[in-house]
Design a protein around this nucleic acid. Structure first.
Lengths: 239, 239
DNA sequence: CGACACCTTGAAGAGGTTCAAGAAATGTGG
DNA sequence: CCACATTTCTTGAACCTCTTCAAGGTGTCG
């Protein structure tokens, strides 16, 4: 067993608890290792897959940061999410055997390539994996419900506050600061995700800064008052 | 084999091709019949499940019409979708073992109750079913991408036009008219789904009517000019 | 250093919301 | 079956949030 083999094993991966089921026995863990065919590096700005591409695999993000976005013929573009280490992308491709969105690396990234055939085969044999795959999909559905709520019912400040809280919470779950973060995406991309124009994003950041809620220096953000952000998102609760 | 048994069998259901995998052999078809534990009637206005409810089953709609919606503590409410015969609801519950949205019948409905345990067990044995379950989830993810695009980048008229086209297309796939439909939901619910106020929904309907694109009489809508609606959704393509 | 992409800010304008009132449909009880 | 209450929908006018247009600032990289 050479070094590379060890490196590729899920059973040795420190992200395992994020992207793989827990509570598997030794035998099951060994089988899970077969899921990852290869690793793939994606340079910042490059696409992992593109709308229309043949679907073959799901991808677990090991390092780096992605956006996914859908586009229409007439040039409309919508960022549908930002994904970080431990998250799985590519689920959109299952239904039609083709991807229906683009996945673009916002910083140099490495992903584990998990051929869908293998996932299917293995999750018919390992109940824990089957369950896990279903949960990942269900989680994505629920996440998107949250985005729909945001886009359908929140105003600009509420959207940006919710966005920042969500980002920092996910980063914190990965061992990063609760209050400081580096935005890997541009204002444009934030705006696309939140359904607002770049100028509105910028203005809203400035407003938060004026109010002492955050400190913003380009893409470096420090949250000075988390509660204030929560109160903005959930106006009722702060009376 | 009594009459009731025949009625409950998926293999005899005329909606089979909508909610069940196709291309199964005889043996597999018989096993699929075990998926549906019971049928359940839901009266107009009643909920099939509610946010917080324990998750146990997925539901295939046999007849009737549902909305799903998420809510926040502070009273925000967002309709996340409208579902009709042949569509499956309840996927939101898988990830946390609890439902995270409400499913409300907008007209008297009947659903097939498919206990999730059985789906798991059976889809480990019937490859076609496994594949089908994955596709259903993936389809829902892709659908929600479309809604995000709508909410994030479209203006009121575009949203309503896209909504009508989507509805009528789905109804047509079920054998109904391409141009006429009865809205099962209120203006309020349309507005919630599309991220607009009820007054805006009403005004936009009136505008379409003034322009001769649709005829609207309360909840009865007749589409007079489908192309015009398409041109509204896709402004580039109509130059 | 200069070119370029990215971000911020101001002012004017448009689209959608809010508030208010009335009309149309639906439901209820006598 | 009708009168009345209630819900749902429509329409108008004022207002507000966000967008658009424009210009200038900041940071980055060859």
């Amino acid at each position: 067993m050479n070094h590379e083999t060890i490196k590729v094993a899920c059973s040795n991966c420190n992200l395992r608890e994020l992207c793989m089921p827990i509570g598997l026995n030794h035998d099951e863990l060994n089988r899970i290792d077969d899921l990852v065919a290869t690793r793939r590096h994606v340079k910042r700005g490059d696409t992992l897959f593109r709308s229309g591409d043949k679907f073959s695999s799901l991808y677990a993000i090991r390092t780096g940061f992605f956006k996914t976005c859908v586009a229409t013929e007439d040039g409309r573009d919508q960022v549908t999410g930002f994904q970080m280490a431990g998250e799985v992308i590519g689920l959109d491709g299952i239904v039609s055997d083709n991807h229906s969105c683009d996945a673009v690396a916002l910083e140099d990234a490495e992903v584990c390539v998990m051929p869908y055939d293998r996932i299917e085969d293995l999750s018919r044999e390992v109940h824990g994996l089957q369950r896990h795959v279903h949960k990942i999909m269900s989680r994505e559905i629920v996440r998107e419900h949250g985005v729909m709520l945001l886009l359908g019912s929140m105003r600009a400040e509420e959207r940006l506050a919710a966005f920042l809280l969500n980002l920092v919470q996910r980063l914190h779950a990965r061992g990063f600061s609760q209050s400081e973060l580096i935005l890997r995406m541009s204002r444009e991309e934030i705006g696309s995700f939140l359904g607002m124009k770049i100028e509105t994003v910028s203005r809203t950041f400035s407003k938060f800064a004026d109010e002492g809620i955050v400190e913003v220096k380009q893409r470096h953000v420090r949250i000075m008052n988390t509660q204030a952000l929560k109160d903005i998102v959930n106006p009722q609760a702060c009376v």
